[in-house]
Amino acid sequence: MTDVVFNPLLDLELKREVAVPPGLVWRAWTEPELLMKWFTPAPWRTTACEIDLRPGGKFRTVMEGPNGERNDSTGCFLAVEPERRLVFTDALGPGFRPTGGGFMTATVTIEPAAGGTLYTAVALHKDEAAKKQHEEMGFHHGWSAALDQLVALVKGL
């Protein structure tokens, strides 16, 4: 899979250097027991996670909110480049089976940097309305808070 071309009309991006090694960021994204501890910004929690780390493999998370809200999302990985990049979507399920819906495709890039890791997350949307919906859901705050939680977690490993 080629690199994603960012379209500011359709896409959202979080790019930050974090003071943890790339290998630990990779582990946090690819080990279900670690991902469940940081993936959803508090006070939400990730209560279940399944990862089949290969193209076409399942990526499922269950997120639960403080008032009983529940979001069960199943998608698949499109690309897996160990310790460098993950691409996943909810538009396709395991084995690349169409789901009939889907909200986004995401790319997480992990690059070595002088201070640790240059972390880039890009969320691709089908149209401007979907991008706006994701922004209004709190993409920038939520993904940034989740990244802070990831950093705090892996510093303790």
Score class of each variant (00 low, 15 high):
V4D: 04
V5H: 12
P8V: 08
L9E: 15
L12R: 05
L12W: 03
E13N: 05
E13A: 14
R16V: 07
E17N: 13
A19Y: 08
V20C: 08
P21D: 04
P21G: 03
P21T: 03
P22T: 06
P22H: 11
G23A: 14
L24F: 04
V25T: 06
V25P: 02
R27I: 09
A28M: 08
W29I: 03
W29L: 14
T30L: 07
E31H: 05
P32F: 07
E33V: 13
E33R: 14
L35H: 06
L35W: 03
K37N: 07
W38C: 05
F39T: 09
P41R: 11
P41H: 11
P43K: 10
P43D: 11
W44T: 06
R45G: 02
T46S: 13
C49D: 03
E50L: 12
R54S: 13
R54K: 14
P55W: 00
P55L: 02
P55S: 07
G56S: 10
K58W: 00
F59H: 00
R60P: 00
T61D: 03
M63V: 11
M63S: 12
G65S: 12
G65V: 05
G68A: 06
E69K: 04
E69Q: 15
D72S: 02
S73T: 14
T74R: 01
G75N: 03
C76G: 00
C76I: 00
L78E: 01
A79Y: 02
V80C: 09
E81S: 11
P82S: 13
E83V: 15
E83N: 14
R84S: 09
R85H: 01
L86S: 07
T89F: 06
D90G: 02
A91S: 07
P94W: 02
P94E: 07
F96T: 01
R97I: 05
P98V: 11
T99R: 08
T99N: 07
G102V: 05
F103N: 08
T105R: 00
A106I: 01
T109Y: 07
T109I: 10
T109A: 15
I110W: 04
P112T: 10
P112I: 09
P112C: 13
A113N: 04
A113K: 09
G116Q: 06
L118N: 10
L118T: 06
L118V: 07
Y119M: 11
Y119E: 09
A121M: 15
A121G: 13
A121H: 14
V122L: 14
V122N: 03
A123K: 00
L124D: 00
H125F: 08
E128A: 15
A129F: 11
A129W: 08
A129L: 13
A130M: 15
Q133K: 11
Q133E: 13
Q133I: 06
Q133D: 13
E136P: 01
E136T: 07
E136K: 09
F139G: 00
F139Y: 12
H140R: 14
H140P: 03
W143Q: 01
A145C: 04
A146Q: 06
L147W: 03
L147R: 09
L147T: 14
L147V: 09
Q149W: 05
L150N: 02
L153Q: 02
K155F: 10
K155N: 10
K155H: 10
G156F: 05
L157I: 10
L157A: 10
